[in-house]
Every structure is written in structure tokens, then in C-alpha cells.
Design a protein around this nucleic acid. Structure first.
Lengths: 344, 344
DNA sequence: ATTTTCAATGCAAACGTTTGCGGGAATATT
DNA sequence: AATATTCCCGCAAACGTTTGCATTGAAAAT
């Protein structure tokens, strides 16, 4: 049960002023004398006055709320992005309303609807896998600013914050090549995953630019990239007549599955087979050997996303930007890949 | 920039009805004929009408928002609790507004204030370490329902959702004793940590009930429970003349530091020294040997917290409950401790 | 035929805040 | 001394919704 709270009216009554004067005094309006302002502010502090933000939002048609939709809060990478979002939103004076879609497309639509209904000023989202029907999102685009991050789609014309997936992947593969590896396998997702495809492009380009032939046997797609899949796919690769000398798993979790399996078969890492992951999850330093991986600066992604979104919210024109912003990653070389060039 | 949205007035105009009738029709008020209701609902759907929740909240003095304050979103355990909170809040028809205190007491106070200002219906919080000045919180208690979870304090008279820390710890130690371990070390936090102290109590009770003498050398307190501390404390324990045959680290992270160090010194786990952690974090199955640990059902904690909070919010009386609810944990035996009794 | 009853709808106030406009008093300008 | 300017402040409308009460018209009861 809520207790009632001090309002403008109460202040006005006690000070023998009009409500409008009190309101203006608290908002530091130039029309009000310093003397009055002081009196008002003092009493307001004393009575612990807090403006009813609902009345405010209602009046100004602005809630100072930003809605965030992401597939899963428990993913470490998502959590770091969230951290960046929370921090920067606070700086900018916005509150954040977070929801999880659990990769459920229907739920994602519902969340969007709820957000609108709640009158958020803008939406930040990472779209669910296999979001095919983007009609809901397109419909919303001219009503409210939306910024996509991490899991994005070029089919949606709005600002998108992503990681330089292709380049990161390219560099990871080049690192392997520079250490003398020539038969580099990739464990990727099916073609519906945006980031997987871009990482795959980087893989292809690195091989091409280094004049290494592509062996289709070394390219493995699977539906999800769990640890278990990493295990299975590794066994598959080890069954090949012509084995790989390095495995690039598009995700840390899968990479750990790879490492565990290689260890089980007593294969030396990185001498026999090197392993690289993607994400720099916390696991990557727990596993032994420590995993070489691509660090994605989650906090920065979150921060950037908020910055662009707020810019759109506070812009007076109803423009729709559709820039793509790339956040730079860095390759972190650890024990699962060779450090220096190895001449055979 | 926001576009304007269909309102009650617009519906009323198009249907040649009054605003009140439209409002009642949408709220399924018995006074309105089915015929009219149908017409209204149809048009509302067609025009994609969504009630302005700000106006609603404003009018009804209820925001259907719950504020959540926790130290750190990126901790896996916090994230699982969050998941439970989000899920159950949705079921109950509440929205959740999440903030991070980063274990910063000053920030925690600010967040509380912001939440009040924003008019949340209730607050869910996990308090920062070393929160000494609980005056802010006490002040709020009679204005708004608060439920504490995970990091709690008995000094605050409100509902608290915790894990059966003492019992869990007791069972973990008994498990070690049943496998023949007699010199069981504990790595705990200093006495300001609520949960650490309760786990320590469980440790003491288990030893006592099994008639094992307490060796003060085996009880180690440190300020934080990082992996690095786990490492350091293990070295310290290994320096003892009379070494332990098991180490209970009060946190998975520290336990992993323990394991890494033991492996470095070629000590057999669990034969020479067994290791137990607490949390069942994702790391516990990544590390080799896999860690025996106590599983804390985060989602359930979150769910329960919401349930109790909502109950208080929706209760008409301004009662202040101060029950403590214990959520049951389970010990998960993995490879870092012996499975069966070993008779020497 | 008159009154009563009842169902269906409309009127208008209220929630707390912001803001355009207008007015009165004091000060400055001529 | 008259006018113009400036400085403070109050009035009242508006935002979208809910809700107590009034109103209407028709059916039912007398």
C-alpha cells in the first residue's frame, strides 16, 4: 500500500504561492525571483518533495524510459552489454526497462507491443534468432526510434551497433596462418545467423588472401553452437582422412567443447591442433589450455547503443538514420594457439 | 521524435460515443451492452489502440513497475535471479526497472531515491557489501514495500529471500567427512559478509557433530573471494606442516583458483585434496576436474522474491512483513570430491 | 395512464504537472 | 509626468484516463 506524497499543490498552499510559480521555481525558470526560488526549494527539500514522474511523463509525452529487449540476460556477453547500457543511460538521464525474449519470436513481438504501450521513448534491441517476420518492427520504426545491437538485421532500416565480425574473424585466421597452420577448420552456424555468416566471410577472405585452398570438409555448420556441438563436430573432424591443424569455433562455448574433446583424444594443443574461439567469455581463462579468442567490448557496445538512441530520441526531426556502427574487437592470444611462427 | 497515437477520444469520435463509454467498453464494464462493447473493441483493434499507461498510472496512482537493485548484473548467479524476476513479474503483470549498484553504497542510496521518484510500486534489492548506513532503507520501509534477496540483512525488518546457507554448507562438509576427509580447510570471507558467516556456521556445526577438532590454521578469511585469492590461500595452506585433505571454498571462483593451484603442484584431486565450491556457476563444469559445488536455484529465488513483493503491494493494509524465506539448495557431487566412502 | 425499475450511456471532475498568456507593480526611459 | 520596459507571478487550459453521478428511453409493474 502506498502512502501519499507531497505535491506541488501542497507546497503552493503552504507558501501562499500559485502552483505554477512553485513549478517554475523548481524548474529554475528565469521568470522567478531568486528569493522565491530559494523559499520553494527549501520547503521542497524539507517536505521531501519528489515530482510525480507519471504526471510529468504524461504531460510532456516523454517518459525518459528506454526499453531493452535481448534474447538472454544470463549470457555473459549480454550482461556486459547491459552493464554499458545501464551506465550510459544513467548518465543521459534515462531509465531502462529490460525484457528477455528467450529467442522466442512471438514473445519478442509482445515485448515490443508492451514497450510501446508503456510509452518508452526509444527501443534498444538484439533480435531473436530466425526473426523472419520483421513487419512488427518495420511498423514501429516510424513511431519510435529503434537501435539494434549485436544481433541485427540489415533488412531493418535503423541504426545498428555491431562488432567488426568479418575483420575480427579475418585477423583470427591470419594469426593461425602466421603460426604455420594451413588446414584450418571452421565450426559455424547455419546461414540464418547474421554474425556467423560475417565471421565466415572473414574466414574465406583470410584463406583467399593467403592463397590457401578451401576444403569443404573443413567447413562445418550446425544449428546451435553449444559445448556439446563443439564436441560432436570435433569428433567429426578427427574422423577425416586429412585432419585439420587448427579449429576456429565461432563461439567460445563451442571452442571449449573442441578443447575438451581434443584433450580426451590426447591431441596436443596448439602443436597438433590449435583452437580459437570468439567472445572472450569468462570460461576462456578457466579452460586449460587457456583459449585464444576475440574480445568483444560489451560495455562499449551498450554505451554506444544508448548514445545513438538518445540522439535520435532528442532530435526534433523525425528522421530515420540507418547507419551501421562497428565496434572494434581485439584478438587475445592465449595458450590454445601458437604464439610465434613455427617453421616446420 | 514521437508520433501521436490513437486515444480514447479518437475512438469516441469515430463511433459517436462518449469517452467514458468507450473506456468502460474496453474495460469490460457491466454497464455497457455487448453490442457496443463489440463495436468498440473492434475499432480499437483496427486502429491499434493502446492505453496510455502513464495516464493510467497517473490516474490510478499505481505504476505496475517494480524496481530492482543489485550489485552486479554480470555475475551469473545474479543474472539467473534476474531471469526469475523478469519471468514472474511478467506473469504478475508488472514491469521491471533494473539498476546496478556496483557495490557502491552511495549509488545504492541514489538508486533508491530515483526509484521512489519514479513511483515504483515496490522494490526488490540485494544490498551492497558493507552497507552500514541502513537509515535510507529503514526510512523507505513505511512508504513502499521492499523485499530483500540474496545479500540481505537481518537489521532491516522486511521480507527476505535467502538460500539455506548454513544447511547447504553443513551438507557439503558432511559429504567430505563421509568420504573419509578429516582435515577440512575453509576459505571464507571476513565477518562482514552475511552469507559467508552463515556458511561458516554450517562448517563449524558439521565438524562438531562429527567430533572433528577445529584447527584454526585451516580457517582462512580474506577480503574478496577472487580466483587469485583462491590461488594465494591454497599456497598458504600447502605451506602448512599438517596439510588439509579437503578445501571448501565458499565461492566457485575461489574454488577454481584452488584447483588450478593444486594441479600446478601436481596434487591429486580429489584423492590427496578434495575441493568443494559454492554456486554451481557455469565454470564448475569447465574446469577439470569438474567441481563439486552447491547449486543455488537463482530463478526460483527471483520468482519467490517477486511473489512476496507483489503480495505486499497488492495487500490493502499497510502491514510490514519480515519473514525470512529459505530456498533449498542441492549439493552437486562431481569429480573434485570422492564419490563413495573411502576406507583407509 | 401513471409510476417504478432498469439497462445503457453521457457529463464532468479529478489525478499532478507544465506552459502560453496576460496583468500588475516596479523600474527605467523619454 | 507620461510612457515604455522589465520583472514576477497567477490564471487556466491541456495531457488521457477513470469513475461517481446524472440522464435518457424503454420496458415492466401498478
Amino acid at each position: 500500500m502506498k502512502k501519499k506524497i507531497c505535491t506541488l499543490k501542497e507546497l503552493a498552499l503552504k507558501l501562499n504561492l500559485s502552483i505554477s510559480t512553485v513549478s517554475r521555481a523548481l524548474n529554475n525558470h528565469p521568470d522567478i525571483s531568486n528569493e522565491t526560488k530559494l523559499k520553494v526549494v527549501n520547503l521542497a527539500n524539507k517536505l521531501n518533495y519528489t515530482p510525480n514522474l507519471f504526471a510529468q511523463g504524461f504531460r510532456k509525452n516523454k517518459t525518459n524510459m528506454i526499453g531493452v529487449i535481448l534474447p538472454n540476460v544470463t549470457h555473459y556477453f549480454s550482461a556486459t552489454i547491459l552493464k554499458g547500457i545501464l551506465k550510459q543511460a544513467e548518465v543521459k538521464g534515462y531509465r531502462v526497462f529490460i525484457t528477455e525474449s528467450n529467442n522466442n519470436v512471438k514473445k519478442q513481438s509482445e515485448m515490443l507491443h508492451t514497450m510501446m504501450q508503456f510509452g518508452v521513448d526509444g527501443i534498444l534491441m538484439s533480435i531473436s534468432k530466425k526473426t523472419k517476420n520483421i513487419k512488427d518492427i518495420l511498423d514501429l520504426l516510424d513511431k519510435i526510434p529503434i537501435v539494434l545491437f549485436d544481433k541485427v538485421s540489415y533488412k531493418i532500416p535503423c541504426t545498428q551497433i555491431v562488432v567488426n565480425e568479418e575483420e575480427a574473424s579475418f585477423k583470427a585466421i591470419e594469426h593461425l596462418i602466421h603460426t604455420g597452420k594451413k588446414r584450418i577448420a571452421i565450426i559455424k552456424e547455419d546461414e540464418f545467423s547474421f554474425s556467423s555468416e560475417r565471421r565466415f566471410e572473414g574466414y574465406l577472405r583470410a584463406l583467399k588472401e593467403n592463397a590457401i585452398d578451401i576444403d569443404k570438409n573443413l567447413i562445418i555448420s550446425c544449428e546451435d553452437l553449444s559445448l556439446e556441438q563443439g564436441r560432436r563436430m570435433t569428433k567429426l573432424l578427427l574422423g577425416l582422412k586429412n585432419k585439420p591443424d587448427a579449429i576456429f569455433a565461432i563461439t567460445d562455448t563451442a571452442a571449449i567443447g573442441v578443447i575438451k574433446t581434443l584433450k580426451k583424444f590426447n591431441i596436443k594443443i596448439p602443436e597438433d591442433i590449435a583452437v580459437i574461439g570468439f567472445s572472450n567469455s569468462l570460461h576462456s581463462t578457466i579452460i586449460e589450455p587457456k583459449l585464444t579468442t576475440v574480445d568483444q567490448p560489451g560495455e562499449k557496445i551498450g554505451k554506444t547503443a544508448i548514445e545513438y538512441l538518445v540522439k535520435e530520441i532528442e532530435s526534433s526531426e523525425a528522421y530515420v538514420s540507418s547507419k551501421t556502427i562497428e565496434i572494434k574487437t581485439t584478438l587475445i592470444v592465449r595458450d590454445s594457439s601458437l604464439k610465434t611462427t613455427s617453421f616446420i
